[in-house]
Amino acid sequence: LEAKFDDSTIFKKIIDSFKDSVTQINFVCSESGIEAQAIDDSRVLLVTVSIPPSCFESYRCDRPTTIGVYLASLAKLLKSANTNSSLTLYVADKPDELLLLFEEPKNQKSMEYKLKLVDITADMLEVDSDMKSDVTVEMSSVEFTKTVRDLTQLSDSFTVSVTKDGIVFSVQGDTAQGKVLLQPREDLADESNNLSISMSKTIDLSFASKYLLDIIKAASISNKIFLKFSDDTPALFEFKMEKGGGVGFYLAPKYDD
């Protein structure tokens, strides 16, 4: 594998977006790009990552390779990332380490790190990314982040319901309750503020607040978030990158009684 990001912070943002959700991950590299999925220790949250060749300045993968890494270690190396530097990932044919090369031609500087790969036994789950859903919401990731931060302070359970009137996020704590209603809007001046809802039926689902607090860490990937809900199935919270691919979180709901 030889894959070069023209801006090293792209890869840093991707890794930082889920490094607190899961401890380790297998990156599956092929000529169609880098794909990964990992489940958190409590088996409630599934993270999926897709980095297609369009995200790279140059991308080459001669034979399919799996790269297992501890995310805490990789995140440490990526602290060196900045918008002035490119980052090339190299893995040899018999992979036992990942080489990260940061280059800042303007400053005549390069940095090289090696990360030992780990053998991770993990089941890949069959996730249909085109999964049909009863409700799809596209909204500002900034708005979503603020709503999650505000409401999760009040309760460890977070409810989402969508009706024709809009999307309602609500919490019911022991001493306080809160509710945020967001209605579809079109902001001609700033498209990222738009909120659109497409739905075939109403939904009402509850999730554990702590996972939502993890999910919003991915908001730096995109100023938009796509939410997909169906009754009694995991919700999908997806951040798509400008150049294709992105990071998705499938979150298992709490039981409805």
């Binding site: 949250l45 599934l46 298992a252 709490k254 409805d256």
Partner: peptide
């Protein structure tokens, strides 16, 4: 206290 479902129960292994 609402019980929490697990993600594995919704997706099959590949």
């Amino acid at each position: 206290n609402i019980p929490q479902s697990e993600i594995d129960t919704f997706f099959s292994e590949n």
